[in-house]
């Protein structure tokens, strides 16, 4: 196991190196640079002098060639220094840190919700397979799966924030807090935050909900054809016990891979959804940093996401060996 882990980690480090190298080269090839997008630089009355520009280029590392600048970034990163955001003039870790909570506020509830709902729906669909109620659920899930989450988000906004405006069901259009947030008592503040979370969380949840429950059903269908299920039935066990105790436990094996693979989505959030809901999370940060050519932030986010993706894959493989005794990494 230890040998396997070491091999995987070394391979992961190599992958990380290649990814960050590729992204670094990409962002440096983007037309325009952080100097050109800075609002202060656009002011015609206060054009910076040539020396100032040179000084700023040096400060931003633009005077170095791409390999040199990448090596600089890499050595600093290994020391734990990700540089400072050009746009916010703060260390990258602080900039990302200030947004992690916001993204987790959306993704953690939505992930939990998706699993809590998908398992019973999947089990229900298997138990009543072919019956009219199961088919109705199946059709609804299939339709939901075909609506991109950003369109669902826009439709939800139209319904709850525009159409139902002024009724008891009205929900805020976007953002994380109401205008009069400061004046509210702390319990009202929590309620306000919850209200702002409802629409984004629904938009985040339903695609994975549709996917997971179809996934569980497909795996369950395979398992309940096995001989040992027939044996369990033959010795007189109730259908409920067979479903949960015998069949579902075996579908857990493919399910854990999903769990591992959804780890990067936790932090990555969704760039489009956060933009639609004007939610100050990591996805929005990434989008903005691309627009303003904020190199250190792009690199920091890419690094964090890649680490999570690799960790998720590793976790999935380890969990695999954990739930399935047939697999071992000796």
């Amino acid at each position: 196991m230890a040998g396997y882990l070491i091999r995987r980690i070394l391979l992961g480090l190599l992958t990380l190196l290649l990814i960050t190298m590729a992204i670094y080269a990409l962002i440096r090839y983007m037309p325009g640079n952080p100097l050109a997008t800075d609002a202060a630089m656009m002011n015609p009355e206060n054009m910076p002098s040539e020396e100032d520009i040179q000084r700023m280029r040096a400060a931003y590392g633009l005077d170095k060639s791409i390999p040199e600048a990448y090596a600089h970034w890499l050595t600093n990163m290994i020391k734990g220094d990700f540089g400072s955001s050009f746009a916010e003039k703060k260390p990258v870790l602080d900039v990302i840190g200030s947004r992690v909570t916001n993204t987790l506020l959306l993704t953690v509830p939505s992930l939990i919700l998706a699993y809590i709902l998908a398992i019973p729906i999947g089990l229900f669909s298997t138990a009543r397979s072919g019956k009219s109620d199961e088919r109705l659920v199946g059709v609804v899930l299939y339709m939901l799966y075909a609506i991109p989450s950003f369109i669902a988000a826009l439709f939800l906004q139209l319904l709850f924030a525009v159409k139902l405006e002024g009724t008891a069901f009205e929900l805020p259009l976007m953002g994380t807090k109401a205008d009069d947030y400061e004046a509210l008592t702390s319990s009202e503040q929590i309620w306000d935050l919850l209200e702002h979370m409802i629409l984004p969380v629904i938009s985040f949840t339903y695609v994975s909900l549709a996917y997971y429950s179809r996934f569980i059903k497909a795996n369950m269908e395979e398992v309940i054809r096995q001989d040992y299920i027939r044996t369990a039935k033959a010795k007189g066990l109730g259908p409920f016990r067979i479903m949960i105790h015998h069949a579902f436990r075996n579908t857990l094996i493919p399910f854990v891979t999903l769990l591992g693979l959804s780890l990067p989505a936790l932090l990555g959030g969704a760039i489009i959804l956060e933009q639609i809901f004007n939610w100050p999370g990591m996805g929005q940060l990434y989008f903005r940093s691309i627009l303003t050519r904020d190199y250190p932030v792009i690199m920091g986010l890419t690094f964090a996401l890649s680490v999570l993706t690799l960790l998720g894959q590793l976790l999935a493989d380890i969990l695999y060996a954990f739930v399935d005794p047939r697999i071992s990494y000796q």
Partner: peptide, 18 residues
């Protein structure tokens, strides 16, 4: 595996910006 590790929307946005 390397390409799969980069979230596709991140890569697409970066490439479009280039």
């Amino acid at each position: 595996e390397l390409v799969m590790c980069i979230p596709s929307i991140v890569l697409i946005l970066a490439l479009m910006a280039v």
